[in-house]
Design a protein around this nucleic acid. Structure first.
Length: 228
DNA sequence: CGCCTTTGACCGGCGC
DNA sequence: GCGCCGGTCAAAGGCG
């Protein structure tokens, strides 16, 4: 098992785990990797920017073909010097995901169901119900990556809170939560049953803070990256 | 000692 | 209503 020098050769993003990614990009990837979704719908891209703000996203949408061109990279300097831009190009036929769009707008509406205010004061039963409802409301984005490490470094700190063997797979699914207070972003990590070399990472929710590896508080300008 | 992972129990959703 | 299944909880133990 190699640790830091793994190479991603295969990378894609799709909005719901059950969907099959339609187009993959093949390219070398820096060892300190992030999660650039290659070729995703504009709405997904924006949401992803808030999930992984350490990545730099450049995208443009072709209104006639309904294709979104996406460049995604961790750092600006690498974007131009290390790799040719064409290597990062990936196209994916995208269609609006009404569910995802609904979730996104819902997240930005001011009503947040009072969950944070009451989480210590309400009954366990009520909590469960709220959680059950909330679970469905968070935007989710998932992508698969060829990697021999399960948990990819995205700049955030995660705490594992569960592991489950899902049906018809020999590899367990791991559940992680962002360690930051008041940040409810979760991610699931599992290996593809058909090809165990592929890691499927699913993000749920959006970070309300900067990545933990740039230690300090988020400046107002940085904060802007999380609100779109 | 604090933070993390592990892991069995529990719960709700869903199909039958 | 029942059973299966995925997701979460939380106690216990490990580690730095």
């Amino acid at each position: 098992m190699s640790t830091t020098s793994h190479t991603i050769a295969h990378h894609s993003l799709f909005e719901e785990q059950d969907q099959i990614p339609t187009q993959m990009g093949f390219f070398p990837f820096p060892t300190n990797l992030t999660f650039p979704p290659l070729g995703c719908h504009q709405s997904s891209l924006k949401a992803f920017s808030s999930i992984a703000p350490s990545s730099l996203a450049i995208s443009q949408q072709d209104s006639t073909s309904n294709l979104t061109e996406t460049l995604f990279h961790k750092s600006r300097e690498d974007l131009t010097s290390t790799f040719g831009g064409a290597q990062f190009l990936s196209l994916r036929r995208s269609s609006v995901n009404p569910w995802a769009l609904g979730e996104v707008s819902d997240c930005f509406s001011s009503k947040r169901s009072g969950f944070d205010d009451h989480h210590l004061g309400i009954s366990a039963m009520k909590m469960k119900k709220i959680k059950a409802r909330r679970k469905v409301r968070e935007p989710r984005f998932c992508f698969k990556t060829m990697s021999d490490v399960d948990v990819l470094d995205d700049g955030y700190k995660w705490r594992k809170y569960g592991q489950k063997v899902v049906k018809n797979t020999q590899h367990p699914r791991s559940y992680y939560r962002c360690t930051q207070d008041n940040c409810r972003v979760k991610k699931r990590v599992e290996r593809l049953a058909e090809d165990p070399r592929m890691v499927i990472t699913t993000y749920e929710g959006r970070h309300v803070h900067s990545p933990s590896n740039d230690v300090e508080d988020s400046s107002p300008s940085q904060l802007g990256n999380f609100l779109w």
